[in-house]
Write a protein that binds this DNA or RNA. Structure first.
Lengths: 232, 232
DNA sequence: CTGTCAGTATGATTTATATCATAGTAGTCT
DNA sequence: AGACTACTATGATATAAATCATACTGACAG
Protein backbone atom coordinates (compact mmCIF):
# COMPACT_ATOMS: atom_id res chain seq x y z
CA UNK A 1 0.00 0.00 0.00
CA UNK A 2 1.17 3.47 -0.71
CA UNK A 3 0.93 6.84 1.01
CA UNK A 4 -2.10 7.90 -0.92
CA UNK A 5 -4.04 11.02 -0.05
CA UNK A 6 -7.11 9.72 1.60
CA UNK A 7 -8.84 12.89 2.65
CA UNK A 8 -10.85 15.38 0.66
CA UNK A 9 -9.82 19.04 1.08
CA UNK A 10 -12.98 19.60 3.11
CA UNK A 11 -12.20 16.73 5.43
CA UNK A 12 -8.66 18.01 5.84
CA UNK A 13 -9.91 21.45 6.77
CA UNK A 14 -12.30 19.92 9.25
CA UNK A 15 -9.49 17.87 10.77
CA UNK A 16 -7.26 20.92 11.19
CA UNK A 17 -10.12 22.76 12.83
CA UNK A 18 -10.19 20.07 15.50
CA UNK A 19 -6.47 20.36 16.22
CA UNK A 20 -5.21 22.02 19.37
CA UNK A 21 -2.98 24.42 17.50
CA UNK A 22 -5.33 25.67 14.84
CA UNK A 23 -8.75 25.37 16.43
CA UNK A 24 -8.94 29.13 17.00
CA UNK A 25 -8.73 30.05 13.32
CA UNK A 26 -11.57 31.27 11.13
CA UNK A 27 -12.94 29.02 8.41
CA UNK A 28 -11.25 31.10 5.75
CA UNK A 29 -7.91 30.89 7.49
CA UNK A 30 -8.35 27.16 7.95
CA UNK A 31 -9.13 26.72 4.27
CA UNK A 32 -5.95 28.62 3.41
CA UNK A 33 -3.93 26.52 5.80
CA UNK A 34 -5.34 23.27 4.52
CA UNK A 35 -4.15 24.19 1.04
CA UNK A 36 -0.63 24.05 2.50
CA UNK A 37 -1.24 20.69 4.11
CA UNK A 38 -0.97 17.26 2.57
CA UNK A 39 -2.75 14.28 4.06
CA UNK A 40 -0.70 11.12 4.47
CA UNK A 41 -1.67 7.69 5.60
CA UNK A 42 0.75 5.70 7.76
CA UNK A 43 0.30 1.99 8.37
CA UNK A 44 0.95 0.72 11.88
CA UNK A 45 4.67 0.57 12.46
CA UNK A 46 5.58 3.05 9.70
CA UNK A 47 7.71 6.04 10.59
CA UNK A 48 6.74 9.62 9.73
CA UNK A 49 10.37 10.61 10.24
CA UNK A 50 13.52 9.34 11.90
CA UNK A 51 15.73 10.95 14.47
CA UNK A 52 18.43 12.82 12.61
CA UNK A 53 16.37 13.50 9.46
CA UNK A 54 16.36 17.06 8.20
CA UNK A 55 13.04 18.54 9.18
CA UNK A 56 11.00 19.30 6.13
CA UNK A 57 7.57 18.86 7.62
CA UNK A 58 5.50 19.80 10.60
CA UNK A 59 2.74 17.31 11.42
CA UNK A 60 -0.76 17.28 12.82
CA UNK A 61 -2.14 13.90 13.72
CA UNK A 62 -5.65 13.44 12.34
CA UNK A 63 -6.52 9.88 13.29
CA UNK A 64 -4.57 7.12 14.98
CA UNK A 65 -1.75 7.22 17.48
CA UNK A 66 1.86 8.38 17.13
CA UNK A 67 4.77 7.25 19.25
CA UNK A 68 7.77 9.56 19.52
CA UNK A 69 10.88 7.68 20.51
CA UNK A 70 14.65 7.69 20.78
CA UNK A 71 17.13 4.85 20.96
CA UNK A 72 19.75 4.55 23.67
CA UNK A 73 23.35 3.72 22.84
CA UNK A 74 22.60 0.06 23.58
CA UNK A 75 19.66 0.14 21.21
CA UNK A 76 16.98 0.28 23.89
CA UNK A 77 13.83 2.07 22.79
CA UNK A 78 12.77 5.03 24.94
CA UNK A 79 9.34 6.47 24.34
CA UNK A 80 9.40 10.24 24.68
CA UNK A 81 5.73 10.88 24.01
CA UNK A 82 2.50 9.48 22.67
CA UNK A 83 0.18 11.64 20.64
CA UNK A 84 -3.47 11.36 19.76
CA UNK A 85 -5.72 13.05 17.16
CA UNK A 86 -5.43 16.82 17.04
CA UNK A 87 -1.91 16.98 18.46
CA UNK A 88 1.11 18.34 16.62
CA UNK A 89 4.46 16.61 16.38
CA UNK A 90 7.80 17.19 14.75
CA UNK A 91 7.51 20.82 15.73
CA UNK A 92 10.69 21.18 17.79
CA UNK A 93 12.88 20.43 14.81
CA UNK A 94 10.92 22.77 12.57
CA UNK A 95 11.09 25.71 14.96
CA UNK A 96 14.75 25.20 15.70
CA UNK A 97 15.74 24.39 12.14
CA UNK A 98 17.79 21.42 13.31
CA UNK A 99 17.41 17.69 12.73
CA UNK A 100 14.45 15.88 14.28
CA UNK A 101 15.55 15.03 17.82
CA UNK A 102 13.51 11.82 17.88
CA UNK A 103 11.68 9.44 15.56
CA UNK A 104 7.91 9.37 15.06
CA UNK A 105 6.23 6.04 14.47
CA UNK A 106 2.58 5.22 13.88
CA UNK A 107 1.47 2.93 16.70
CA UNK A 108 -1.67 2.02 14.78
CA UNK A 109 -2.79 2.91 11.28
CA UNK A 110 -2.87 6.69 11.28
CA UNK A 111 -3.59 9.71 9.15
CA UNK A 112 -1.50 12.83 9.42
CA UNK A 113 -1.49 16.28 7.89
CA UNK A 114 1.99 17.34 6.81
CA UNK A 115 2.80 21.02 6.37
CA UNK A 116 6.05 22.13 4.76
CA UNK A 117 8.36 23.83 7.20
CA UNK A 118 8.61 27.10 5.28
CA UNK A 119 4.88 27.22 4.63
CA UNK A 120 4.22 26.82 8.30
CA UNK A 121 6.72 29.48 9.30
CA UNK A 122 5.27 32.07 6.96
CA UNK A 123 1.78 31.15 8.04
CA UNK A 124 2.83 31.73 11.63
CA UNK A 125 4.30 35.12 10.84
CA UNK A 126 0.91 36.12 9.50
CA UNK A 127 -1.01 34.62 12.43
CA UNK A 128 0.47 35.67 15.76
CA UNK A 129 -2.39 34.24 17.80
CA UNK A 130 -1.42 30.77 16.60
CA UNK A 131 2.11 31.41 17.81
CA UNK A 132 0.83 32.19 21.29
CA UNK A 133 -1.14 28.96 21.22
CA UNK A 134 2.00 27.08 20.27
CA UNK A 135 3.92 28.62 23.14
CA UNK A 136 1.21 27.37 25.40
CA UNK A 137 1.44 23.85 24.06
CA UNK A 138 5.23 23.81 24.17
CA UNK A 139 5.08 25.07 27.74
CA UNK A 140 2.84 22.17 28.66
CA UNK A 141 5.15 19.69 27.01
CA UNK A 142 8.15 21.15 28.76
CA UNK A 143 6.34 20.90 32.07
CA UNK A 144 5.55 17.27 31.42
CA UNK A 145 9.10 16.53 30.34
CA UNK A 146 10.44 18.11 33.51
CA UNK A 147 8.12 16.00 35.62
CA UNK A 148 9.32 12.90 33.88
CA UNK A 149 12.94 13.95 34.31
CA UNK A 150 12.36 14.14 38.02
CA UNK A 151 10.66 10.75 38.04
CA UNK A 152 13.39 9.04 36.06
CA UNK A 153 16.16 10.61 38.13
CA UNK A 154 14.58 10.32 41.53
CA UNK A 155 11.82 7.72 41.76
CA UNK A 156 11.80 3.94 41.94
CA UNK A 157 10.41 1.80 39.15
CA UNK A 158 7.12 1.15 40.92
CA UNK A 159 6.48 4.87 41.35
CA UNK A 160 7.54 5.59 37.80
CA UNK A 161 5.15 3.00 36.45
CA UNK A 162 2.32 4.31 38.59
CA UNK A 163 2.98 7.84 37.40
CA UNK A 164 3.16 6.72 33.81
CA UNK A 165 -0.25 5.12 34.11
CA UNK A 166 -1.69 8.19 35.82
CA UNK A 167 -0.30 10.51 33.19
CA UNK A 168 -1.71 8.36 30.41
CA UNK A 169 -5.09 8.09 32.06
CA UNK A 170 -5.24 11.87 32.51
CA UNK A 171 -5.05 12.09 28.73
CA UNK A 172 -6.92 9.00 27.64
CA UNK A 173 -9.23 7.95 30.44
CA UNK A 174 -9.23 4.76 32.47
CA UNK A 175 -8.70 2.44 29.56
CA UNK A 176 -5.18 2.51 28.17
CA UNK A 177 -4.35 0.82 24.87
CA UNK A 178 -0.72 -0.05 25.57
CA UNK A 179 1.35 -3.19 25.88
CA UNK A 180 3.63 -3.80 28.85
CA UNK A 181 6.56 -3.25 26.56
CA UNK A 182 5.33 0.23 25.65
CA UNK A 183 4.65 1.06 29.29
CA UNK A 184 8.15 -0.12 30.17
CA UNK A 185 9.71 2.00 27.42
CA UNK A 186 7.87 5.03 28.75
CA UNK A 187 8.78 4.40 32.39
CA UNK A 188 12.39 3.60 31.64
CA UNK A 189 12.39 0.00 32.74
CA UNK A 190 12.34 -3.45 31.15
CA UNK A 191 9.35 -5.38 29.88
CA UNK A 192 9.83 -8.10 32.51
CA UNK A 193 9.89 -5.66 35.38
CA UNK A 194 6.82 -3.88 34.03
CA UNK A 195 5.01 -7.22 33.77
CA UNK A 196 5.91 -8.13 37.33
CA UNK A 197 4.86 -4.82 38.84
CA UNK A 198 1.69 -4.54 36.80
CA UNK A 199 0.97 -8.10 37.88
CA UNK A 200 1.13 -6.96 41.48
CA UNK A 201 -1.16 -4.04 40.70
CA UNK A 202 -3.57 -6.47 39.12
CA UNK A 203 -3.50 -8.72 42.19
CA UNK A 204 -4.09 -5.65 44.33
CA UNK A 205 -7.19 -4.81 42.32
CA UNK A 206 -5.73 -1.49 41.19
CA UNK A 207 -5.78 -2.33 37.51
CA UNK A 208 -7.21 -4.98 35.28
CA UNK A 209 -5.91 -5.89 31.89
CA UNK A 210 -6.34 -7.85 28.77
CA UNK A 211 -3.72 -8.26 26.10
CA UNK A 212 -2.61 -4.84 24.89
CA UNK A 213 -4.99 -2.99 27.19
CA UNK A 214 -4.74 -1.81 30.78
CA UNK A 215 -7.71 -0.49 32.71
CA UNK A 216 -7.29 1.55 35.85
CA UNK A 217 -9.77 0.42 38.47
CA UNK A 218 -8.60 2.36 41.50
CA UNK A 219 -7.06 5.68 40.64
CA UNK A 220 -6.76 6.75 44.28
CA UNK A 221 -4.71 3.74 45.28
CA UNK A 222 -2.57 4.23 42.21
CA UNK A 223 -1.96 7.84 43.11
CA UNK A 224 -1.04 6.83 46.64
CA UNK A 225 1.43 4.36 45.25
CA UNK A 226 2.91 6.94 42.94
CA UNK A 227 3.59 9.26 45.87
CA UNK A 228 6.05 6.97 47.53
CA UNK A 229 6.89 3.58 48.95
CA UNK A 230 3.91 1.51 50.17
CA UNK A 231 5.07 1.53 53.79
CA UNK A 232 5.32 5.13 55.00
CA UNK B 1 20.08 41.98 53.50
CA UNK B 2 17.01 42.81 51.50
CA UNK B 3 15.96 42.55 47.88
CA UNK B 4 16.91 46.09 47.05
CA UNK B 5 16.90 47.35 43.49
CA UNK B 6 20.51 47.43 42.58
CA UNK B 7 20.36 48.47 38.94
CA UNK B 8 19.71 51.83 37.35
CA UNK B 9 17.00 51.89 34.65
CA UNK B 10 19.74 52.26 32.05
CA UNK B 11 21.64 49.28 33.34
CA UNK B 12 18.43 47.26 33.37
CA UNK B 13 17.72 48.16 29.77
CA UNK B 14 21.25 47.21 28.82
CA UNK B 15 20.88 43.89 30.61
CA UNK B 16 17.64 43.08 28.81
CA UNK B 17 19.27 43.92 25.51
CA UNK B 18 21.82 41.20 26.17
CA UNK B 19 19.16 38.57 26.90
CA UNK B 20 18.40 35.83 24.40
CA UNK B 21 14.70 36.62 24.28
CA UNK B 22 14.76 40.36 23.88
CA UNK B 23 18.03 41.04 22.09
CA UNK B 24 16.22 41.71 18.81
CA UNK B 25 14.22 44.66 20.09
CA UNK B 26 14.85 48.32 19.30
CA UNK B 27 16.19 50.61 22.00
CA UNK B 28 12.80 52.26 22.38
CA UNK B 29 11.07 48.93 22.80
CA UNK B 30 13.69 47.84 25.30
CA UNK B 31 13.23 51.01 27.29
CA UNK B 32 9.49 50.37 27.38
CA UNK B 33 10.04 46.80 28.47
CA UNK B 34 12.49 47.75 31.17
CA UNK B 35 9.85 50.00 32.70
CA UNK B 36 7.85 46.80 33.28
CA UNK B 37 10.81 45.02 34.82
CA UNK B 38 12.03 45.16 38.38
CA UNK B 39 15.59 44.24 39.29
CA UNK B 40 16.04 41.92 42.24
CA UNK B 41 19.14 40.70 43.97
CA UNK B 42 19.26 37.11 45.23
CA UNK B 43 21.92 35.93 47.65
CA UNK B 44 23.41 32.51 47.02
CA UNK B 45 20.97 29.86 48.16
CA UNK B 46 17.89 32.13 47.98
CA UNK B 47 14.91 31.01 45.94
CA UNK B 48 13.28 33.17 43.26
CA UNK B 49 10.21 30.94 43.52
CA UNK B 50 9.20 27.51 44.75
CA UNK B 51 7.55 24.68 42.93
CA UNK B 52 3.83 25.06 43.41
CA UNK B 53 3.83 28.86 43.81
CA UNK B 54 1.34 30.79 41.71
CA UNK B 55 3.31 32.31 38.87
CA UNK B 56 3.30 36.07 39.18
CA UNK B 57 6.60 36.76 37.51
CA UNK B 58 8.64 35.87 34.49
CA UNK B 59 12.41 36.19 35.00
CA UNK B 60 15.49 37.09 33.06
CA UNK B 61 18.78 36.30 34.73
CA UNK B 62 21.16 39.27 34.59
CA UNK B 63 24.18 38.10 36.55
CA UNK B 64 24.92 34.94 38.48
CA UNK B 65 23.68 31.41 38.09
CA UNK B 66 20.21 29.90 38.65
CA UNK B 67 19.47 26.28 39.43
CA UNK B 68 16.01 24.96 38.56
CA UNK B 69 15.15 21.91 40.60
CA UNK B 70 12.47 19.55 41.77
CA UNK B 71 12.32 17.23 44.75
CA UNK B 72 11.52 13.54 44.47
CA UNK B 73 9.04 11.90 46.81
CA UNK B 74 11.96 10.77 48.99
CA UNK B 75 13.25 14.33 49.16
CA UNK B 76 16.08 13.84 46.68
CA UNK B 77 16.99 16.96 44.77
CA UNK B 78 16.84 16.68 40.98
CA UNK B 79 18.34 19.51 38.98
CA UNK B 80 16.25 20.21 35.90
CA UNK B 81 18.37 23.00 34.47
CA UNK B 82 21.09 25.54 35.13
CA UNK B 83 20.83 29.01 33.68
CA UNK B 84 23.36 31.73 33.09
CA UNK B 85 23.15 35.47 32.34
CA UNK B 86 20.71 36.38 29.57
CA UNK B 87 18.52 33.31 29.94
CA UNK B 88 14.87 33.36 30.91
CA UNK B 89 13.31 31.16 33.56
CA UNK B 90 9.92 30.67 35.16
CA UNK B 91 8.40 31.02 31.71
CA UNK B 92 6.57 27.69 31.49
CA UNK B 93 4.32 28.54 34.40
CA UNK B 94 3.63 32.02 33.07
CA UNK B 95 2.65 30.83 29.60
CA UNK B 96 0.54 28.02 30.89
CA UNK B 97 -0.99 30.00 33.72
CA UNK B 98 -0.40 27.14 36.14
CA UNK B 99 1.82 26.83 39.21
CA UNK B 100 5.59 26.85 38.76
CA UNK B 101 6.52 23.25 37.95
CA UNK B 102 9.89 23.53 39.69
CA UNK B 103 11.80 25.75 42.10
CA UNK B 104 14.44 28.29 41.10
CA UNK B 105 17.40 28.83 43.38
CA UNK B 106 20.35 31.19 43.06
CA UNK B 107 23.48 29.03 42.96
CA UNK B 108 25.64 32.09 43.57
CA UNK B 109 24.71 35.68 44.32
CA UNK B 110 22.60 36.73 41.34
CA UNK B 111 20.65 39.59 39.86
CA UNK B 112 17.40 38.98 38.03
CA UNK B 113 14.87 41.08 36.17
CA UNK B 114 11.31 40.20 37.15
CA UNK B 115 8.44 41.03 34.81
CA UNK B 116 4.84 40.70 35.93
CA UNK B 117 3.01 37.92 34.14
CA UNK B 118 0.26 40.15 32.71
CA UNK B 119 2.72 42.82 31.64
CA UNK B 120 4.73 40.24 29.79
CA UNK B 121 1.71 38.74 28.09
CA UNK B 122 0.46 42.05 26.80
CA UNK B 123 3.95 42.98 25.70
CA UNK B 124 4.11 39.75 23.74
CA UNK B 125 0.80 40.41 22.04
CA UNK B 126 2.26 43.65 20.77
CA UNK B 127 5.57 42.10 19.71
CA UNK B 128 5.07 38.95 17.67
CA UNK B 129 8.72 38.62 16.71
CA UNK B 130 9.57 38.09 20.38
CA UNK B 131 7.02 35.29 20.49
CA UNK B 132 8.76 33.53 17.62
CA UNK B 133 12.03 33.87 19.46
CA UNK B 134 10.46 32.32 22.53
CA UNK B 135 9.18 29.39 20.50
CA UNK B 136 12.71 28.87 19.34
CA UNK B 137 14.08 28.85 22.86
CA UNK B 138 11.34 26.58 24.17
CA UNK B 139 12.00 24.23 21.28
CA UNK B 140 15.64 24.05 22.26
CA UNK B 141 14.77 23.33 25.85
CA UNK B 142 12.35 20.64 24.84
CA UNK B 143 14.99 19.06 22.66
CA UNK B 144 17.42 19.05 25.55
CA UNK B 145 14.86 17.66 27.95
CA UNK B 146 14.08 14.85 25.52
CA UNK B 147 17.74 14.00 25.23
CA UNK B 148 18.03 13.83 28.97
CA UNK B 149 14.89 11.69 29.21
CA UNK B 150 16.51 9.22 26.90
CA UNK B 151 19.74 9.29 28.92
CA UNK B 152 18.00 8.78 32.24
CA UNK B 153 15.79 6.02 30.90
CA UNK B 154 18.32 4.21 28.78
CA UNK B 155 21.93 4.92 29.70
CA UNK B 156 24.20 3.78 32.52
CA UNK B 157 25.45 6.16 35.16
CA UNK B 158 28.88 6.51 33.60
CA UNK B 159 27.38 7.54 30.27
CA UNK B 160 24.93 9.88 31.95
CA UNK B 161 27.71 11.62 33.84
CA UNK B 162 29.81 11.94 30.71
CA UNK B 163 26.85 13.42 28.83
CA UNK B 164 26.11 15.79 31.66
CA UNK B 165 29.66 17.09 31.56
CA UNK B 166 29.57 17.42 27.78
CA UNK B 167 26.29 19.28 27.85
CA UNK B 168 27.58 21.68 30.48
CA UNK B 169 30.81 22.27 28.66
CA UNK B 170 28.94 23.02 25.44
CA UNK B 171 27.32 25.89 27.32
CA UNK B 172 30.10 26.98 29.64
CA UNK B 173 33.41 25.87 28.18
CA UNK B 174 35.95 23.43 29.59
CA UNK B 175 35.87 24.76 33.12
CA UNK B 176 32.72 23.84 35.03
CA UNK B 177 31.92 25.46 38.37
CA UNK B 178 29.97 22.57 39.92
CA UNK B 179 30.33 20.31 42.90
CA UNK B 180 30.05 16.53 42.60
CA UNK B 181 26.76 16.76 44.39
CA UNK B 182 25.36 19.11 41.74
CA UNK B 183 26.66 16.92 38.96
CA UNK B 184 25.06 13.90 40.62
CA UNK B 185 21.72 15.73 40.97
CA UNK B 186 21.82 16.55 37.27
CA UNK B 187 22.79 13.05 36.16
CA UNK B 188 20.30 11.35 38.44
CA UNK B 189 22.74 9.50 40.65
CA UNK B 190 24.21 9.82 44.14
CA UNK B 191 27.08 12.00 45.26
CA UNK B 192 29.23 8.96 46.15
CA UNK B 193 28.76 7.37 42.76
CA UNK B 194 29.55 10.66 41.03
CA UNK B 195 32.71 10.98 43.12
CA UNK B 196 33.83 7.47 42.24
CA UNK B 197 33.23 7.82 38.53
CA UNK B 198 34.71 11.30 38.29
CA UNK B 199 37.67 9.91 40.23
CA UNK B 200 38.15 7.34 37.48
CA UNK B 201 37.91 10.06 34.85
CA UNK B 202 40.55 12.02 36.73
CA UNK B 203 42.85 8.99 36.86
CA UNK B 204 42.30 8.52 33.15
CA UNK B 205 43.39 12.09 32.50
CA UNK B 206 40.01 13.01 31.04
CA UNK B 207 39.23 15.66 33.62
CA UNK B 208 41.01 17.48 36.37
CA UNK B 209 39.38 19.11 39.31
CA UNK B 210 39.71 21.23 42.35
CA UNK B 211 37.06 21.67 45.01
CA UNK B 212 33.87 22.92 43.36
CA UNK B 213 35.38 22.99 39.89
CA UNK B 214 35.78 20.41 37.15
CA UNK B 215 37.92 20.97 34.06
CA UNK B 216 37.53 18.86 30.97
CA UNK B 217 40.93 17.95 29.59
CA UNK B 218 40.04 15.46 26.89
CA UNK B 219 36.68 16.13 25.32
CA UNK B 220 37.14 13.44 22.66
CA UNK B 221 37.69 10.68 25.18
CA UNK B 222 34.75 11.94 27.18
CA UNK B 223 32.54 11.86 24.10
CA UNK B 224 33.68 8.33 23.34
CA UNK B 225 32.80 7.31 26.85
CA UNK B 226 29.39 8.94 26.59
CA UNK B 227 28.59 6.91 23.48
CA UNK B 228 28.67 3.59 25.23
CA UNK B 229 30.47 1.10 27.42
CA UNK B 230 34.28 1.24 27.31
CA UNK B 231 34.66 -2.29 25.89
CA UNK B 232 32.82 -2.53 22.59
C1' DC C 1 44.64 29.93 64.76
C1' DT C 2 41.22 26.92 65.75
C1' DG C 3 36.73 25.05 65.21
C1' DT C 4 33.28 24.02 61.98
C1' DC C 5 31.34 22.65 57.85
C1' DA C 6 30.91 21.52 53.01
C1' DG C 7 33.19 18.98 49.79
C1' DT C 8 35.89 14.98 48.59
C1' DA C 9 37.30 10.27 49.17
C1' DT C 10 37.00 5.17 49.84
C1' DG C 11 35.61 0.65 51.74
C1' DA C 12 31.90 -2.74 52.96
C1' DT C 13 27.36 -4.25 52.31
C1' DT C 14 22.79 -4.37 50.53
C1' DT C 15 19.27 -4.22 47.21
C1' DA C 16 16.52 -2.99 43.39
C1' DT C 17 16.33 -4.15 39.00
C1' DA C 18 18.35 -5.98 34.80
C1' DT C 19 19.43 -10.07 32.52
C1' DC C 20 18.90 -14.79 31.12
C1' DA C 21 16.03 -18.67 30.39
C1' DT C 22 11.85 -20.95 29.43
C1' DA C 23 7.01 -21.38 28.56
C1' DG C 24 2.19 -20.57 28.16
C1' DT C 25 -1.43 -17.83 25.45
C1' DA C 26 -4.16 -15.16 22.48
C1' DG C 27 -4.65 -12.99 18.30
C1' DT C 28 -3.92 -13.13 13.18
C1' DC C 29 -2.50 -14.58 8.76
C1' DT C 30 -2.78 -18.07 5.04
C1' DA D 1 -7.38 -25.54 11.10
C1' DG D 2 -2.76 -24.90 11.77
C1' DA D 3 1.26 -22.05 12.11
C1' DC D 4 3.29 -18.01 13.38
C1' DT D 5 4.20 -14.17 16.12
C1' DA D 6 3.64 -10.74 19.67
C1' DC D 7 2.33 -10.51 24.27
C1' DT D 8 2.27 -12.16 28.91
C1' DA D 9 4.19 -14.73 32.66
C1' DT D 10 7.58 -16.48 36.12
C1' DG D 11 11.79 -18.38 38.12
C1' DA D 12 16.91 -18.09 38.76
C1' DT D 13 20.91 -15.38 38.73
C1' DA D 14 23.89 -11.49 38.11
C1' DT D 15 25.17 -6.82 38.84
C1' DA D 16 25.14 -1.85 38.78
C1' DA D 17 24.51 1.34 41.82
C1' DA D 18 22.50 2.79 46.27
C1' DT D 19 23.26 2.84 51.00
C1' DC D 20 25.84 2.94 55.21
C1' DA D 21 30.00 4.07 57.53
C1' DT D 22 34.13 6.52 58.34
C1' DA D 23 37.67 9.78 57.47
C1' DC D 24 40.50 13.33 55.25
C1' DT D 25 40.90 18.14 53.55
C1' DG D 26 40.58 22.81 52.45
C1' DA D 27 37.93 27.13 53.18
C1' DC D 28 36.05 30.26 55.97
C1' DA D 29 34.14 32.44 60.43
C1' DG D 30 34.61 33.83 64.85
Amino acid sequence: MKDADTLSPEALTAALKKSLVFSGLSDAELAGLSRLAAARRLEAGRYAFWEGDTPDYFYILITGRIKVLKHSSQGKEVIIAFFGPGEMFGEVAVFEGRAYPASAQAAVESQVAAIKKDDLLSFLTAHPQVVLRIINILGGRLREAQGRLKDLAGERVEQRLARTLLMLSAKLGASLPFTRQEIADMAGTTTETAIRILGRLKDGGIISSTRGEITILNQDKLRLLSEGPPQV
